[in-house]
């Protein structure tokens, strides 16, 4: 596999940004919710995917996934479905926690590549939404499918999923447009 120096460095700095956003709390937004605040921690993988392709997106997501694994593996492995079967518990935890995070960046990249023929800004927004939803939909979907949580948890997670998708779209557009000097389309300042 031939991986460019740029891919390595960009992935590295995006992981560092994720870490700083997580540690400082600036990556979280207060949303009335039981689990946690809405987060933009999935934005670095999205931006990695959009700027440098699926591999960088996946690697940035992988580190985010590792952090999530430490936080959520116990919830999966002690759920009634897996409490008596540690091996299946680990497998389920990997599928539910790691897999979606790995796919955030590639999903964002794929959607961006497909939609960028039209309006660049729309494509960036779509990539943000796609990356964010890949995360929430897959995590919740797989958790329900693999019987970790009952279906009703959707009601709890739905508002958060919508919020995070909007946050991801806004931040992805703003950051990538600024970095690549893409005009957002107003054609000028509003002063």
């Amino acid at each position: 596999m031939n991986i460019s120096t740029r891919s390595i460095v960009v992935a590295g700095v995006l992981i560092a940004i994720s870490a700083v956003l997580a540690y400082t709390g600036l990556g979280y937004f207060p949303v009335p919710n039981v689990t946690a605040a809405a987060t933009i921690l999935h934005v670095p993988p999205i931006i990695g995917g959009v700027l440098e392709g699926p591999l960088v997106g996946a690697v940035v997501g992988l580190v985010f996934g590792f952090d999530s694994f430490i936080k959520f593996a116990s919830t999966v492995t002690t759920s009634p479905a897996y409490a008596n079967n540690p091996t299946m518990g680990w497998v389920a935890a990997f599928i539910i926690i790691f897999l979606p995070r790995l796919l955030i960046g590639p999903a964002a990249w794929w959607v961006y590549k497909r939609t960028r023929g039209g309006n660049e800004i729309v494509a960036l927004g779509a990539a943000g939404v796609a990356g964010s939803l890949t995360n929430t939909v897959l995590v919740v979907g797989l958790a329900i499918l693999l019987q970790v949580f009952t279906f009703e948890i959707v009601a709890l997670v739905l508002p958060q999923a919508v919020f995070e998708a909007i946050l991801a779209a806004v931040v992805t557009i703003a950051v990538v447009a600024a970095w690549k000097r893409i005009e957002i389309g107003r054609g000028g300042s509003s002063v």
């Binding site: 600024a178 005009e183 107003r186 000028g188 300042s189 509003s190 002063v191």
Partner: peptide, 11 residues
């Protein structure tokens, strides 16, 4: 600096 257009950033 963070705004796309100079005017907005100053504003």
């Amino acid at each position: 600096l963070f705004e796309q257009y100079v005017g907005d950033d100053v504003a």
